[in-house]
């Protein structure tokens, strides 16, 4: 009876439907062939079903990414909803893969699906985690670099939610700048 009752409870709908993408670097294939849409979800319950089913980010091999984007937005600069935007970038040391990476990524996911950025949540496109030997990265993507108020609000809330020290500084980079330079050289448009 308990099982039946549980099944009858309505799931909790999210504001947006989200898509999980997985990227695995296979050098012999073009970049886009290495990027796969895993699935989409639009309830709290389905999010957790997915989260507990897939590998933790820290267990992925180097060169892999997870991306979570609003359904219909592809996790690439070229998408029309991304191309004028940018990203709040969190760069991690090698040691942090084992201490902080999974916690920071889960917190990022909860910010997205919970619409943590108030009226500016509509500016959010998605988030990406890159697993790399030289240091992992997490980025929160927004759609319009010029929306300074929204971008900085999102950055301040995001930094607080990640529990970063007030002395730590995170930067926001325009995709248009990242696309033309290596990310380590891209200048920050905003910092919080």
């Amino acid at each position: 009876d308990v099982v039946i009752a549980t099944e009858n409870v309505e799931k909790h709908p999210l504001q947006s439907r989200w898509a999980l993408w997985f990227f695995k670097n296979v050098r012999s294939q073009p970049w886009q062939c290495n990027l796969r849409l895993v699935t989409t979800f639009n309830t709290v319950e389905d999010f957790w079903a997915l989260y507990t089913h897939v590998q933790l980010a820290s267990k992925l091999s180097s060169g892999c990414d997870y991306s979570i984007f609003k359904d219909g937005i592809e996790p690439m600069w070229e998408d029309s909803r991304n191309k004028r935007g940018g990203r709040w970038l969190i760069t991690l040391s090698k040691q942090q893969r084992h201490s902080d990476l999974d916690t920071l990524w889960l917190e990022t996911l909860l910010c997205l699906i919970g619409e943590a950025f108030d009226e500016h949540s509509e500016e959010v496109c998605g988030a990406v985690i890159n697993i790399r030997a030289k240091g992992d990265k997490i980025a929160l993507w927004t759609r319009e670099t010029e929306n300074r108020e929204a971008v900085t609000h999102i950055g301040r809330v995001y930094k607080e939610r990640l529990g970063l020290s007030s002395k730590a500084v995170i930067g926001y980079q325009a995709h248009a700048d990242t696309a033309t330079k290596s990310s380590s050289l891209t200048k920050n448009k905003f910092v919080v």
Binding site: H12, Q15, V44, E45, W48, Y51, T52, L110, G114, E115
Partner: peptide
């Protein structure tokens, strides 16, 4: 209105049997 969920609410669903 917008469906906003705070982190504690969302985390409360993490280990629910229906999610496994």
């Amino acid at each position: 209105g917008k469906r906003q969920y705070d982190r504690d609410f969302l985390l409360g669903f993490q280990f629910m049997p229906a999610c496994v």
